[in-house]
Each structure stands twice: as C-alpha cells, then as structure tokens.
Write a protein that binds this DNA or RNA. Structure first.
Lengths: 294, 294
DNA sequence: TTCAAAATGGAATTGTTGTTCCAAGTTTTG
DNA sequence: CAAAACTTGGAACAACAATTCCATTTTGAA
C-alpha cells in the first residue's frame, strides 16, 4: 500500500517514545523537538534543529543514527515521504476540517462518531473566537487593563461554570507582583474571603446567567467597601453590570446546546497578557525555562 | 503586516502566470512544475526539480533569477515561509509576540494599545484551534470516550496550570451519572483522595511539562490499583504517557511564558460533549433545570 | 542562407551541509 | 577514589548542492 509512509512516521515516533527515558540529555532535546515540530522537519537542516534544541549539530546526527538511520538525511526522508503522501493539503485547514466533518455526517446513519462530535465542537469554538475578535471592544479592554494595573489587591470571583476561568485568572495574576486573592468559597468562607476588600482594590468577577449568588454577594460587598469591579459576563444589561466600573461582554457559542468556555478563557488570558505587557514584565522575567510550571 | 508570507506566494504565482507565454521552453517547464507542485517545493532541491522537468539544473536557477531572486534558495524561502505560517503556528506565533515587543522598543514612541496585544493573543488562540482540529487523532479520541464511558468512577487530576482545566472537566463530568472525584490536593490530601481508586475506575490526568509531582503520584497509584489512565498532555514522550491507556496530545503555543490553555480546554470540553452524546444524555439533562448554573 | 541573439548543457567553482574523528569533560561503577 | 563508559563539542573532512562560466546549439530575423 502507498500508506506505508505515515506509518513509518508513527512507528519511528513510537520507537522514540519508548527509548526516550534512556536517552542522554541532548538526544532528549532532539527527540522532543522532533515530536513537537514534526511538520517543519521536512525542511529543517541539521543546524536548524541543533540551534533550536541548543545542542551541537553532531548530536542531531547521532540522534538519527541512534534510531538506525545512516544519517540525518535518512531520518528526514521518512518525514518527507509522509509529507509527500498527504500532499493534498496545500489547501487550508478549514477546508480539510469541513471535509472531515462532512464525510462522517454522510456515512454513518446511526450515531455520529465521537470524533465528529469533537470536530464540530472545535469548529464551533473556533467560530466563537472569530466572533470574539470581530466584536472586540478595545475601549473596554484597555480600561480593564488599566484598572488591573492600578489595583493594589485583586480579588477574583467566579463559581461553577466560571470557576475554572477564575482559577486560571488567579493563577496567572499571581505571576505579577500584585496581591491576588481568589474567592474560592471553600469551607463556606466566601464572606470572610471578600471582607478584606477595600478602596484601591479591584474585584475581578466572572459570571454568567443565571448569575451565581456568591458572585453577586462579592460584588455588593466590593461596592460597599469602595472597591472597583471588573466584570466579565454575558450581557451588559445584567444587574451586576451596573455596579461594575468596566464590563467585558463575552458571547459563548454553543454546540449541541452546550456552552463553550473558550471565549471567556481566551479573553481572560488576553487580559493577563496585556496586563503583563503593560506592567513591562518582560518575557525573560515571566519565562520559566525549565521551572515547574504545570 | 505579519500576513505577508502567503501573500508573497500568491503574488509570485501571479507574476509567473503573467510572463509564462514569453518564457523560453525550459523555463516554461519549470514554471509549470512550480505551479503544480507548490507544496513539494519546500523540500525539493534544484536537481529534483530539474530532473522532473527534464531540464538542466542551471535552468532552474535561471528561472529563479528571472523572477528577481538571487538564486533558487530565495525562491524556495518564499514557499517555506508560507508553509511555516499555515502549518506550524508555534514558531510564527512566538515570533509574532517577539515582534510585538520589539516594535514597541523600536518604532512607536508610546506603548502598543492593550487591544492590539489582545487581538494578537486571540488570533494565536484561533490558529491554535485550527491546529488542534487539523492534527486531531480520532482514534485516540474515540478510545478516550469509550474509556470514560465504561468507567465506574472517574478521578480527575491536574495541578497549577492544568488545574482550571481539571476543575472544569470534573464539573462537567458531574453532569453525567458517573461518580466523579477531583484530586484537588486541598489540605495536602492528594494521597488520600486517590487511594480509593481501583479496578474499573479511570484516572483522567491533565499535565504538561514539567509534569507535576502530584499528578505523577496519582498516575502511579492508579496503575498500582489496576485503574486505567486517560492522559491529556503535551507529548507522547512523557514518563506518564507509557502508563496511560489513552494519550491525547495537545500542543499549546505560549505567549509571555504563559502557554495558552484554549486548546486543552476545548479538547476537554469536546471530550465531555462526545461522552454525553455517547451516553445518550440529552443536553437538557446536563443542565440544571432550576438550579443556578453560573 | 547567414548572422545575431538567445537558450542550453557540460563542467568547474564556490559555498554549505552532513558527517566523522578525537580530545576533553562528565557520569557511572567497581 | 580510580577506572571505565559514556557524553559532549571543536575541528577537520567529505559530499553535495547551488551557482557561474563558457562553449555549443538553437532560434529567429534580415
């Protein structure tokens, strides 16, 4: 069969995975690069790879030889052949995906394959991001960044569906020099956690209809104590929105009636990145090369 | 703008088409080959092309020069850049950010607008999702769904950066009839939380380099007790990967040292949706009818 | 047909890349 | 603590690819 080439790649990759542990440091680097940058291997030269892995060119050759090739050229040939096989996709991924999804729909008249469902979901998330980018409110976003930049302590609140986003946000913000407190509600301590908020602080609240009671409480408390509120929500019309200094509205698309989270997540990540940028935290400062950073 | 690479190809191709008639025979051959075999140009050498066109290698060089390049290398670079843009966003993405930061230092006398940073970030996430969809491993995904479907109790583990995803996953899975336990590590109870795992159960582990200790511990424990592992990670090479029954590899691009999370998030959501679909849970059921559902 | 201009292919050149070799450094083992 | 095994990086080497040069052939116009 002509399908031998992609198999060869799989086989090689599996072989690499097997031996990975026993490999010396430099070869591990190369192995990692090979696995993560499969596509660019078709055109990379030994020195390119060596450079990006921070190893000596000969290490790359040794890597190839370690896996039974005469030299790098032979190893590369494996990837080139695989690339040549799937040579139909000079076209965009969108088309490929569309085709994939379409194919499955047509065939099975029973259930959809799990993969199809997933592809649909991913496609939906992507569309959502398109939407987010298109309806992006730069003014509000800039205001949000400024607000966070000025804040002394940032309280992050979000429950249930919003909790993952809140915990991500809190985690990210920890990497600035600001004090960050996530209102986790652990042990029923929501109230105690928010009590400390005051003037100069900011409540970063994430909430969607029907707005969580805990978050509403935090919001009320924040206002009372003179703190500002940055609200990430689904509508500028909500009761909470009126209390907030800055409102970032996110619309989540839903696939199979299931609301996605990617947009909210992406927005909050963008918020962090922009804040880091604003605070002039350089890449070097925030980068943790081999540090624990799970 | 950063979109110049694919454009460059288009422009070149148009230029070739224009002049085609006036070209001498051999250059016509080459032009034809270039137009028809665009994708393989990224790896073809002069002699490859010459051979396939039945012309002398020097003709290929002359062809490149005819179109304003110093030599074949420059022409090829155009195609390589286009390939890199469409295919491996991690590279072009980092570069974009680096460029962003660089621009600030160089040109603009102020800072970049926060909005610009955000737009860049969102664009990156979008590209990431395309990549996720394009490199989607249907087999592994289906296996993952099946594994979850059969599980009696699902243990979800993920720390630090992976924690938000883990907590989302746990939250979502609660909406099935399965018993779900998230290893939160609260109160240093990681060990006690995972002790209960056993045959018939599944550990849903989410971890990225350098793999969190807690998650590794859970994985070891799961194996010991005869449970299966579903691993969401960044590389099939990790030590954990070998222990796992199913490995879903996700590649996240990173900005400011903070790897994006959208892909992982989207994948886990997709996993849940597919599982719900498989279990024939209607989406209505997964919603909490009267309850607040933030 | 003849001449000039252009195209072509052989062969040498130049530059680069992949590879090997070896010495120095590191880790492991007895 | 010493010897052995292995890893690493520098430099030389070999192979090859891209490019140029030039003689030859072809084409086209007068």
């Amino acid at each position: 069969m002509s399908k031998k080439s992609p198999d060869a790649v799989d086989q090689l990759l599996r072989s690499i995975a097997d031996q990975y542990e026993r490999l010396p440091r430099q070869l591990k680097n190369v192995a990692g690069y090979v696995e993560q940058n499969r596509p660019s291997l078709v055109m990379d030269r030994v020195s390119d790879i060596a450079g990006r892995c921070g190893v000596h060119p000969s290490a790359v050759v040794r890597f190839a030889q370690h896996f039974g090739f005469a030299g790098f050229g032979e190893l590369q040939a494996v990837f080139r052949r695989a690339y040549a096989c799937g040579c139909s996709p000079p076209l965009s991924y969108k088309e490929r995906i569309r085709k994939l999804v379409h194919d499955r729909h047509a065939g099975h008249h029973g259930k959809l394959a799990a993969g199809t469902v997933a592809q649909n979901f991913i496609a939906g998330s992507r569309t959502g991001l398109d939407d987010l980018a298109a309806n992006f409110d730069e003014t509000a976003f800039a205001a949000a960044v400024k607000l966070l930049d000025k804040a002394e302590t940032i309280y992050v609140a979000g429950v249930r569906r919003s909790y993952p986003v809140a915990s991500y946000t809190a985690y990210a913000l920890q990497h600035t020099q600001k004090r960050v407190i996530q209102i986790s509600g652990l042990g029923g301590m929501t109230r105690h956690q928010i009590y400390g908020i005051g003037k100069g602080d900011v409540l970063f609240a994430i909430t969607f209809a029907p707005y969580g009671r805990e978050t509403q409480f935090c919001s009320k408390m924040a206002r009372q104590q003179g703190a500002e509120i940055l609200l990430v929500t689904d509508s500028r019309l909500s009761a909470l929105a009126k209390q907030a200094r800055v409102v970032l509205a996110v619309k989540e698309s839903s696939v199979f009636a299931f609301r996605s989270l990617t947009n909210t997540m992406a927005l909050c990540q963008a918020l962090f990145v922009a804040l880091a940028y604003q605070m002039e935290i350089t890449i070097e400062e925030t980068r943790e090369p081999r540090e624990a950073h799970d």
